[in-house]
Design a protein around this nucleic acid. Structure first.
Lengths: 215, 215
DNA sequence: CTTTTTTTGTCAGCAAGAATACAAAAAACC
DNA sequence: GGTTTTTTGTATTCTTGCTGACAAAAAAAG
């Protein structure tokens, strides 16, 4: 099983000490500057982690999917949040106090090691992104994003893979370090080639190899 | 004390099971595709972690300093290396077998938690970099790099802070996602302003605030 | 159903910086 | 000390893609 999400068994240990909460798409779960005293287990929906400059520039630095912990790094490191977490869809979460979580880790070596593995995986993902931003053009980065999303939240249908999360072009631009008009144009290029299509905010990948040829 | 390097006490636990090795500047410690069966403690010098595309494009995704572990994420995650590690200066390392290291973690809850903290810190650093690549121009990214290097390997002298690692413009370009000629030009701009100077491959920061004004 | 807000399509102008090329300088090597 | 290799300085050309602006379309709100 995957190295990025918790098993049911691991989740059950956590669920015993947590409090369930629900939020709607767009809700900001935590903000930069706040104390990092809580940690969340995401049960349903997706959450984006982003940063802001003083002048309003925004970059999404990570996405979290069901089974993943949110706010992990800062709770371990201590101190303040450095980023924002926002619900990309309607989400179900379970909230824990930081202190309870850390105590649990000290008493559960296997869980502790799993947390290290998850962080290692996330670090690798982040380094992938750095490398893409440094070495690839926007169409390549966009194609890579869509393929990654397909792997993490794609629903296989007869004619392709439907991404099970709502996305605006503005949101996508923040994920690939581009501008909204460029994303609109590039998605339309992909569509003209028959690589993708969409209904509302939901993109469907029709031809994976066509998409890969843009990388 | 810092959350990114090991304490002497933590190091001594590791040193007992490791093998010392030395390499010269430029030596490639491990390469993408190799089995991730070893882990290193860096004792002296700096190491860069980078990725390569098939077409030779290169991006440095992280730097490691004395007291830090190298090859950590992949050892935890398992499988193959996804990146290259190369000595930026003459380095002293201590090498361990992956299996020994993992066993140690399971038996030392405090050390295990420390590893999680280190990874959390690295993840945050990587997300900083993503955000900089997405939102800042080359001069801003270069200024930020120099300031970060000053904090991690700067030697305070009467007229400024000397960076204690040799850097070519090509190397810097790979760290900030730019091209060599652009780095040469930007460094010269910084120097004309009196913000920095250099002797050979060693840069010295003369006026931190001048540099910050480029961010 | 109508109004308001958000999102998307599109275009023209412009700026950042990549690619390329070549000479000068510095460093490494013999 | 001389030769080779690496690194740096610099200019020119050319691309990518950002900015800003505005209309059309879609979605949300009333």
């Amino acid at each position: 099983m995957a190295n990025y999400a918790l098993h049911d068994q691991e989740k059950s240990i956590l669920l015993a000490i947590g409090l369930p909460v629900q939020y709607r798409r767009g809700h900001v779960i935590f903000s930069a500057g706040e104390a990092a005293d809580r940690i969340y287990l995401l049960e349903k929906g997706q959450v984006k982690i982003y940063r802001l400059t003083e002048d309003g520039d925004r970059a999404t630095v990570a996405l979290r999917y069901p089974g993943e912990l949110i706010g992990l790094a800062e709770v371990l490191y201590g101190g303040q949040r450095t980023c924002f977490a926002q619900a990309m869809a309607n989400v179900d979460l379970v909230m824990f106090k930081c202190a309870d979580f850390l105590e649990l880790l000290l008493n559960q070596p296997e869980l502790n090691l799993k947390i290290s593995r998850i962080l290692g995986f996330r670090l690798r993902e982040a380094q992938d992104t750095i490398y893409e931003l440094a070495c690839r053009y926007v169409p390549g980065r966009l194609a890579l994003l869509l393929l990654k999303l397909a792997a993490r939240c794609g629903i296989h249908e007869t004619d392709g893979i439907r991404l099970d999360l709502p996305l605006t072009h503005e949101e996508i631009a923040c994920m690939v370090g581009s501008s909204r008009p460029t994303i609109t144009a590039t998605l339309n290029d992909f569509q003209k080639e028959g690589a993708i299509t969409w209904q509302g905010k939901y993109i469907k990948i029709l031809q994976t190899d066509r998409l890969k040829s843009w990388i």
